[in-house]
Simulated scan of single mutants.
Amino acid sequence: MTDRIPLPLPHSFWLHLVLPRAGVLLALVVIGTALRVPVGLLYVLLAADVVLFVKQALRFQASADNHLRGMGGMTLIWGGYLVLLVLVFASISLWWGAFLFAGQPVEPPELFTDRMDRQYAAEYELTLSDDHTSLTFNGTITHGLTKRVTTLMAENPQLDTVILTSIGGHIYEARGFANLIRAKGLNTTVKGDCSSACTLVFAAGTQRGLSPGARLGFHSYALEFGPALLNLDLKKEQDKDRAFFRSQGINESFLIQMFDEPSTGLWYPSRAEAQQVGLLTP
């Protein structure tokens, strides 16, 4: 039996060195970034890669020796050695990354409800003052707000004022927020505009005021999506909230017209009007 004849050096460079190692490096990129492999299995794969790399190097060296015997120059050989050195460092780096990735704790996938809560919470800001006596709400009244405010109020019993800036939003969440304010006997004030469902939250305050330039905006109710839903009567919903305003001492003359403005517009009563009908407290 005769020994295997080494391939010509250029062929060996590509077939024994570059192409197999490129496949290994590509696999290491996947293992180190996307495919989480158990650490024990990584050690087995590492040992197999070391054996493979040694065989690659030996085959290239055999071709290099044969190249020299054929009176070939050293340029191709030194070029192959340089590539071999680069491949060594690349392999070490990727193997290190693969072990680091495998050792990272696996975080459980985010629950759908948690993701939705996070997305809704991004639509508004809740900020406590330094002395924790006032809570500023800025943004859209949306799902999960009542739950968050309940927690904040429980953690900060010294709260006495809620500062509002909002274009409105979900009326059921506004009712929840308003009931919390009324139950705690908190005061409310507006900074900027407080429109639509926000006015219900404002009306819940024991003492109610407007900062300079602030406005209250009122309009009739409308569904956020499409035509009226079954079993939902917008007039009854308006009457329900009109009764809430009445219970907060708002004048009946204002209650009659508070929902007259179409849902596509806003009615901003003047500060004097708001004072006269009881929206603002002395």
Rank of each mutant, 00 (worst) to 15 (best):
S220P: 04
L230F: 08
R215A: 07
G226T: 07
I250L: 13
I141D: 00
P227D: 12
K191I: 08
L135R: 02
V162L: 09
G139R: 04
Y221P: 00
A243E: 15
W267K: 14
T140I: 12
D160N: 15
T136A: 11
I171R: 05
G185D: 06
R242Q: 14
A197T: 03
R246Q: 15
A272E: 15
P262M: 12
M258T: 01
L186C: 13
L232G: 03
L159K: 10
G209E: 11
T206C: 03
D193I: 01
L216C: 06
L159Q: 06
I167V: 13
R271A: 12
A203E: 04
L229Q: 13
Q257P: 05
K240Q: 11
M258N: 02
T142H: 04
E252N: 14
N179V: 07
I141T: 01
T189M: 14
E224C: 02
S195V: 00
N156G: 11
F254W: 11
T136F: 01
G176F: 09
E155V: 09
E261C: 06
S211A: 15
K191D: 13
P269L: 11
R215V: 00
I141E: 00
T150F: 06
K240M: 07
L145G: 05
G176K: 09
C198G: 04
Y268E: 13
V190R: 05
N179Y: 09
T264L: 12
K184Q: 12
L159N: 10
V190I: 09
F202C: 01
A178L: 05
S196I: 00
E155Q: 15
F259E: 06
E155F: 10
I163P: 03
K147E: 13
F245G: 01
S196A: 13
A204K: 03
A154N: 14
S220I: 04
F218G: 00
I181P: 02
E173F: 09
F218L: 03
A243F: 11
F244R: 09
T161D: 03
V190K: 05
C194S: 08
F202P: 02
C194G: 04
E173Q: 14
N138W: 00
P262S: 11
K235W: 08
I256R: 13
M153Y: 08
K191N: 14
L234S: 06
L145K: 04
S270E: 11
Q248A: 11
T142D: 05
F244H: 08
R246N: 08
L229D: 12
T150R: 13
T264Q: 12
L159E: 07
F202M: 04
I256P: 01
N231D: 15
R242G: 08
I171H: 06
S263H: 12
S253D: 14
G249R: 07
S253K: 15
A243Q: 15
I163E: 06
P262K: 07
Y172N: 13
L232T: 13
V162W: 01
F244P: 04
D260K: 14
A197Q: 10
T189H: 02
F177T: 01
G185E: 08
S270M: 14
I141F: 02
T142C: 04
I163Y: 02
L216D: 01
S220F: 01
R208L: 05
Q257V: 15
A178Q: 03
F254E: 04
A243S: 14
T151L: 09
P212S: 12
K240I: 03
S247E: 11
A243C: 10
